[in-house]
Design a protein around this nucleic acid. Structure first.
Lengths: 376, 376
DNA sequence: GGTAGTTTTTGAACCGTTTCACGATCAGGG
DNA sequence: CCCTGATCGTGAAACGGTTCAAAAACTACC
């Protein structure tokens, strides 16, 4: 710590690029002769500075950095000493500009605060870490413009590839980016075109699993608290739910009561279940399938408040199998997705050899049954 | 989608001498014999290409990009057409190398899958988005080496600043980085030195709040399910808990029963509370303070299974006030931290004017009381 | 038509690396 | 003593932008 007492001046004087920048650059070149030494070049040391300090050519410094065995140990040590001395840190921009290799990957997810996506991001990072790639993560909040902006930014930064969970069905910009030479993989979304790799979980199957399970428990009228159909996951789960009905000889038109919740949160769930409860007794469902666990949380809370027994009077199934699903007052049945693996697999696909065909991976979800949907 | 069927051809034909443009490229870059592929080998268009296509000088193209009002509308349009035509995307590395301005910020947090940190990251992103900064996020998993590695990577990439929640007390590398000219802010950790800005929540106060509350409810012997003392947050919360005891005239030595849980998870909580319950009746606590809500979750679950009434026989307080705390069978009292604001504030500090002194922000936590610690 | 002033455009220099053809140096064999 | 090869080290040429002094093209006005 004390070591740094010397430096603060460094931070204080700022490079005033505007007026004397040009002058200082060409005329004076550097170092207006101060005896104090030590507090010299505020500019980050460059490879040239190192070369001068070590009394070698820049090429040699570069070799020390990149191909150490090509330089004599004696020279190498001298250079390394200079590097330490000057506190030299490579300039990645120059490096990439010349060499063309940067090791970073950009990720755009729908929602930074959704555990589903952060777990996936974690998976991506785990996989990428081996090759010391850097992750850049951003959340689009389901906004197409924001998604585009981040992808463009990533591309300018020269990322090696991008992994994106698209906000809408419009993925032209992803295709275009890929055409320009940046690898791309869709996350949580099957690719609509064969040229683009993707990793997804079969949401139709997930919806089907949940509803088939409820039917097997004897329910014949099921509410589906769903989000907006503009979100693909919502559409697909709905489709699966309906299919399960048809499989069982029920008519989705009447047996599946879809209710659109105002938001995918506990509050949304509360509003949704109240709407279901308000239905005339004759058409009132005996079970609810929730499009995610947060919604289910609100449903459970409301049912408890209303004194409606779960699962006896109303069965509940959620989606995502979040950490706390098993720990609730009434442990919640839920459809589990292999979140982490989703991420690692996406990262894998990013770096497949050029000539191999893009791959479309689809994981199967799995139903975890707990008390909230136990047989009556 | 169909639109892009054309692209490969466009790319091929565009390159001067349309017939063998592709070949010319591949002489150097190999990649012979690609049938349908065609997308390979295409060099990204550069500003020079655009200039040539538009019949202007490179400087003009640059101006169109950066100072559009300095170029005549007619010229601008011509250039813009060329840009669109060639599918030109700026090369950020070159841009930064010359101009020195890159707009990205690196963040290193302890744990990517912890909602606390992802919420903070969200706050950071929200704040940074205005200036279209890019976020690069990484998790250190409490490993100092990994933390160092990511910071170094960020520095090489030339980020504008870093926000880091340090894994250990050793922050020399952060200071060094800052001395080299990269802005830095500590997250969730008060800075030990005045030169470094930081944003934190007062964990001592948090621990004190929780325990003082329990004492006010009449508890005189309180278990503290804590994590390893190598984690600063754990140390501080413990300190606060003990202080609350002293404040109330109790002796922490006997009144505060600290139990170290094997992990900061529900499973850890279960193990911890079992240890507490195994104590001889005389020294058995009547309340538990848990170092985070996940631990509290396990405690609640175990108590329920054991038929111990909450809060009548055992009161429980958690930490973090996660989303579902209020939604549990027994709604959980918890210490809330202004997570999002933590992030936005950290981002703010990053870009304060050079000459202003680094600022140390400490937020006060807040106790949210619910049923799990209601008066008996 | 000439002059001065203003707006546009130009083009070369430069940012900090990597790369690579080319010298230097040296050991050993003929 | 010369030649050959191998090993090290050199230094200039990219990479693709931004900058800025200076040239060019206009404008307005006498």
């Amino acid at each position: 710590m004390k070591r740094f007492k010397n430096y603060p001046i460094q931070g204080g004087g700022r490079r005033d690029s505007s007026h004397n920048g040009g002058m200082a650059n060409s005329t004076k070149a550097s170092k207006p002769a101060d005896g104090a030494g030590a507090r010299t070049a505020r500019r980050r040391a460059s490879i040239t500075d190192v070369a001068r300090a070590a009394g070698v050519a820049v090429g040699t410094v570069s070799n020390v950095l990149n191909k150490p065995d090509r330089v004599l140990p004696a020279t190498r040590e001298r250079v390394e000493a200079a590097i330490a001395e000057l506190n030299f840190v490579r300039n990645g921009s120059a490096r990439q500009l010349r060499a063309g290799t940067l090791t970073s990957v950009g990720v755009v997810v729908l929602d930074l605060s959704n555990p589903f996506f952060t777990d996936a991001a974690r998976g991506i990072q785990d996989r990428l870490e081996r090759d010391s790639f850097t992750l850049m993560v951003a959340g689009s909040d389901e906004d197409l413009d924001r998604e585009r902006r981040y992808l463009r930014l990533y591309e300018e930064h020269g990322v090696q590839g991008v992994i994106v969970s698209p906000a809408t069905d419009d993925i032209d910009h992803v295709l275009a980016l890929r055409e320009r030479g940046t690898a791309a993989v869709l996350l949580d979304r099957p690719s609509p075109v064969p040229e683009l790799a993707s990793v997804a979980v079969d949401d139709v199957a997930g919806g089907r699993l949940a509803v088939a399970h409820l039917i097997a428990q004897g329910h014949e009228r099921i509410a589906f608290l769903n989000g907006s159909h503009s979100i693909r996951q919502c559409r697909d789960r709905r489709e699966g739910a309906a299919a399960a009905m048809t499989d069982a000889g029920l008519d989705p038109e009447t047996a599946l009561v879809e209710i659109t919740v105002p938001s995918l949160t506990p509050q949304g769930g509360e509003a949704g279940i109240r709407e279901a409860l308000a239905l005339p007794a004759a058409s009132r469902p005996s079970a609810v399938f929730c499009v995610n666990d947060l919604v289910a949380l609100g449903v459970l809370r409301t049912l408890r408040r209303e004194g409606i027994a779960v699962p006896e009077e109303m069965a509940v199934v959620g989606y995502d199998d979040v950490t706390f699903a098993a720990e609730l007052a009434t442990p919640l049945s839920s459809v589990r997705q292999p979140t982490l693996e989703l991420g690692t697999r996406a990262a894998d696909l990013l770096f497949r050899p050029e000539d191999s065909a893009p791959e479309q991976v689809v994981f199967e979800p799995e139903l975890v049954t707990r008390e909230s949907s136990a047989a009556r």
